[in-house]
Amino acid sequence: MMNTTHGAIGVAMASVTVLVAPEFAAVAAVAALLGSVFPDLDLFFGTHRKTLHFPIVGWVVALPATVWAVLAPSVESVGAAFFALGATVHAVTDAAGAGHELRPWERTSQRAVYAHVLGRWIAPRRWIRYDGAPEDLVLMGGVTLPVLVLYDGLVRNVMLLALVISVVYTTYRKRMPDLTPDWLG
C-alpha cells in the first residue's frame, strides 16, 4: 500500500474522536497520521517492512494504550493510543498488499512483512496488488471520505494533499523502477 493510504487509514480511525471526544480530534488525527507513516522509516535502514513493522507485537502496545485513552482521556493518552494503533494497523495491512520488492506486480517476493514473534516473514495476500495500484488509490480515496466529512482546516487540507499525491503516484508508479538508481533498489 501507498504510505498515503496507510496515513489515510490512520486518520480515518482517528475520526471517531470527532464524534465522541471532539476536544481530542486534532491530536488523534496528528498522532494517527504520524503513527501510520512511521513504520516506513525503516526504508532508510535497508530493512524495510522489518525493523519498524510489528504486525503482532504492535498490539501489545496499541491495546493497552487504547484502554488508557478510554479510561483516562488526555492529550498524552489519546496521542499514544492513536500513534500505536496507526503503526500497528500499518504493519498488519502491509500483509494485505504485495511483496517487498521494487516491481511488486512481478510477484517475485513472498515477503510482505516480518513477524518478529514468529521469526519469519508473512506472505503477501496481494488484495492490493502493489503500492500505487488502482485499487490502492480507490482504498485511499474511500478511507479519506469520512475524514473530509468530519474534519475541516489543516487535517482536511493535509488529506486532500495526500489524495492528490496518491493520484500522481498511481499515475507514474509502474515507471518509477526504471528511474530508481541501482543502489536504492
Rank of each mutant, 00 (worst) to 15 (best):
V143P: 00
Y130H: 05
E106M: 15
R120Q: 12
A133V: 06
G132T: 05
A133H: 06
G141H: 00
W127L: 09
V143G: 00
P104V: 14
D136C: 06
M140L: 11
V113L: 09
P134E: 03
G99P: 12
A123R: 10
R120L: 14
G99C: 10
S109E: 15
M140S: 04
L139R: 00
G119E: 10
L102R: 15
V92C: 06
L145S: 00
W121N: 02
G142P: 00
Y130T: 06
L137P: 00
A95G: 15
L102W: 15
H90D: 12
V138H: 01
R129L: 04
G97W: 05
E135S: 06
R129Y: 03
R103Y: 10
D131C: 08
P124A: 08
R129M: 05
W127I: 05
A98I: 10
W127Y: 14
A133K: 01
T93C: 09
H100R: 15
A123N: 13
S109F: 13
R103M: 14
A95L: 06
L137A: 02
A112I: 09
H90K: 04
G142R: 01
P104C: 15
A91V: 07
A133E: 03
G99E: 12
I128E: 01
V138I: 12
D131N: 10
V92E: 10
V138L: 04
L102P: 02
Y114C: 08
H116M: 07
V89L: 14
H116Y: 14
T144G: 02
H116E: 05
L118D: 08
G142C: 03
D136S: 03
W105Q: 07
E101Q: 14
V89R: 03
Y114M: 08
W121G: 05
P124K: 04
G132Y: 08
V117H: 04
R111F: 11
A133R: 01
D94C: 12
W121P: 05
V92A: 10
V143T: 00
T144Q: 01
T93A: 07
V113G: 06
H90S: 07
G119L: 13
W105V: 09
W127M: 08
T108V: 14
D131R: 04
M140V: 01
G97S: 13
A115S: 14
T93R: 02
L145H: 00
V138C: 01
G97F: 06
P104T: 11
T93N: 07
G132N: 02
R120G: 05
G132M: 06
P104S: 15
G142V: 01
E135K: 02
L139W: 07
I122W: 11
V92P: 01
Q110S: 14
P124G: 07
E106H: 11
R125Q: 11
W105A: 09
V117Q: 11
R129T: 09
V138M: 06
T144C: 02
L118Q: 10
